[in-house]
């Protein structure tokens, strides 16, 4: 489904600010995989997501979706395969357009846009049904401007917009981080339901370890531009937050040890 081969990304190369954000990342996702990604600030998680979505081009390596190489494909062309929800609830919707217009925009992700009306009677019904699954009553506010919705409502709408056209790949970058605990829990639950119902191949970045353990069938941990730990299936199920933290400390210290060994 998704394959990253030897991806490297360096920011500000050749200057004092040089930063290696990704170091030869390899990652393969099978159809239906739901991978949660954890890692400290600056580990390169967002950079990896941006390389996949086409917002950033990698320095070396290649990105493959559905067996096709998409490394050089522009962001909007790649969007035909990818649904995305951003961390900022303001980022995923058009505030001055109505709920139904936003859904119409999302509905056209996989199609060529034409001079036909974006919101038709038939589509409106479809949108209404889709909105009902959120259970927020948004189905009764189709013509309300999205800018009037709360952050949680907007994020739920963003999630729906990213998923209801069944993307080949769903990218979620800390999409619950800006919400209060109750809203975050709601969006987490919605995410789980939608991914399961539509069998979406998903990559989800989160800082909430408990969430990372509860969701998905695979987990990866990133640090300093590398994938340093990976667990899937039974092994992932048996993990706990304590074990993860221990694992992280162990790997970190062994890194330090080898670094020190090199220095000596």
């Amino acid at each position: 489904m998704l394959e990253l081969r030897q991806i490297t990304k360096v920011f500000n190369e050749g200057t004092v600010d040089e930063k290696v954000a990704l170091k030869s990342i390899n990652l393969t996702l099978a159809p239906g995989d739901f991978v949660t990604i954890i890692g400290s600030n600056g580990a390169g998680k967002s950079t990896m997501m941006n390389v996949i979505s086409g917002k950033l081009l990698p320095d070396t390596g290649s990105v493959w979706i559905n067996g096709q190489e998409v490394t050089q494909l522009s962001e909007h062309k790649r969007a035909r395969y990818i649904g995305r929800v951003f961390q900022d609830p303001l980022a995923g919707t058009a505030p001055n357009m109505t709920i139904e217009e936003n859904l119409a925009l999302a509905y056209n992700r996989t199609k060529r846009r034409t001079l036909k009306f974006g919101v038709t009677k038939q589509r409106r019904e479809f949108f209404r049904e889709a909105l009902k699954t959120l259970q927020l009553g948004l189905e009764n506010r189709l013509t309300a401007k999205v800018g009037l919705l709360s952050g949680g409502e907007r994020q739920a709408l963003s999630l729906l917009m990213a998923t209801f056209t069944k993307p080949d790949l769903l990218l979620l970058d800390e999409h619950t981080a800006a919400l209060d605990p109750a809203r975050a829990e709601l969006i987490t639950q919605l995410t789980k339901d939608m991914v399961e119902k539509l069998q979406l191949t998903t990559l989800m970045v989160t800082h909430n370890m408990e969430q990372a353990l509860r969701l998905g069938n695979r987990l990866i941990m990133m640090d300093q531009g590398q994938i340093i730990f990976e667990a899937s299936g039974k092994e992932k199920q048996s993990l706990t937050v304590e074990k993860l933290l221990q694992e992280f400390q162990r790997i970190r210290s062994s890194h330090f040890a080898s670094d020190r060994a090199m220095l000596v």
Binding site: E75, A79, G92, A94, L105, N108, M161
Partner: peptide, 8 residues
């Protein structure tokens, strides 16, 4: 940003 993530 949003509309280019919906392939426009």
């Amino acid at each position: 940003q949003m509309i280019s993530s919906f392939s426009a």
